[in-house]
Design a protein around this nucleic acid. Structure first.
Lengths: 227, 227
DNA sequence: TTAAAATGATAGTAATACTATTATATTTGC
DNA sequence: GCAAATATAATAGTATTACTATCATTTTAA
């Protein structure tokens, strides 16, 4: 896909960085290696000091790109949803059936990229894992309203919005598209996590796409019910 | 209800405390005021130092009851699910229809208590709010397997288990009761939060119980589908 | 070529999440 | 009622975190 979209530039709200990291070598190193380190350590144990040591730059230089490690995480996850929207557009183009488009959208959220795919210095596979375990934590905070104003969730909202419209093509009277979709997207990420760590909270199956199928069924049932 | 169940003692795994807080005055103060402070400050900005200053005891004394602030949060949320299971048992007793029992179970997760209800030093209303915004964060961590072994999620799993059985009464062939329920419970908490802070990610209605109705419908549709 | 901008090197700060030690209350068993 | 055991208070200390500040040096752009 990097071959197909060579001039792709994912948009991220400018409240999510101090200097656009893609404008310099150091910026790109910050992106690439922060994704690596957060995947490995988890966000909590990740620090700018460790990142600085790893890439051979002082902490202070990283702070010129991102004012806090929270801002960096917002940036990465926002980039992820921007990237997901691109994929969504591509993968649903030229499909007339809204049901099929919805199915593809749900499958997309659960599908990870090839393990070695790197777009714009971003290791997609690792960023997907970060999103699964960290994204929900970014809004469940006391200062969510501030983060929201800085644009932390714009790309996610836009993604949800786009899929909502597909739902309303299927059933124009359906009243809960956003509610249904966030239930599905957040639920889907959670089931992946439960499957690995808390199996009694899910129903893991041998087929690789049981989660996708479950949520596609859930969506279609709800959309077509007379709620 | 405190009148109905005067001898109620909620069980919490003994990996979630160092000394049972209900065995002493100080312990009870820790529980009561930590619930207050976490509600007010959010868990991140809550510290044992602040709590100690507030209740007039040194930090070190609190550490004898809970080895970390994480352990205290696990304790509180575990207590919450223990309490919820009690309510579940009471509220579904003597109801023969499993569909009605399931409906009551879902409604229960979304219903908050009276604002001034205090059981065993716990302000239920505030603990419900803590659970909404903090519980999901407690498992999405790198050390989830350790916390799990310490019993951090036992009460939640048991609650889910109990409701799962109701689902299987409705449809013995249904394969995904846990997956459906965690989707609903976590989703329900999230929609409450979105309704207050990120309205574009939900579909808030004027009726107070629109979330409950949405999830009850979702559950019944899925359980009766031939998935 | 020069000045502006970015980066590096280094230092410092307040707060966090604890641990350790010793003194003083409080409770319990006899 | 009193000693022994136990719980709590008072105080100090540590490594780490999440930054901020300053100034020298390198890189880049006009």
């Amino acid at each position: 896909m990097d071959v197909l979209l060579p001039n792709l530039k994912i948009k991220v709200s400018d409240g999510l960085f101090q200097i656009d990291p893609f404008t310099s070598k150091l910026g790109k190193k910050i992106i690439f290696h922060s994704v690596e380190m957060i995947t490995e350590l988890g966000f909590e144990k990740f620090t700018f000091k460790k990142l600085g040591e790893y890439i051979g730059s002082p902490e202070a230089s990283i702070y010129r790109y991102f004012k806090s490690k929270n801002q960096l995480l917002f940036y990465l996850i926002s980039w992820y949803w921007g990237w997901m929207e691109c994929r969504l557009i591509l993968e649903t183009a030229n499909i007339s059936s809204p049901i099929v488009r919805l199915e593809k959208s749900i499958a997309l959220v659960l599908s990870n990229a090839d393990e070695h795919l790197v777009i714009e210095e971003v290791e997609i596979y690792k960023l997907h894992q970060i999103t699964i375990s960290e994204s929900i934590k970014t809004y469940l905070k006391k200062d969510v309203d501030t983060s929201n104003k800085e644009g932390a969730f714009s790309n996610y909202k836009q993604f949800v919005e786009r899929v909502s419209k597909i739902i309303n093509e299927i059933n124009p009277d359906y009243k809960y598209p956003q509610m249904l979709l966030t239930t599905i997207f957040e639920g889907a990420h959670l089931q992946v996590f439960f499957g690995e760590h808390l199996p009694r909270l899910t129903n893991k199956q041998n087929t690789p796409d049981y989660i996708t199928k479950f949520y596609i069924n859930l969506a279609l049932q709800s959309i077509n019910s007379s709620l």
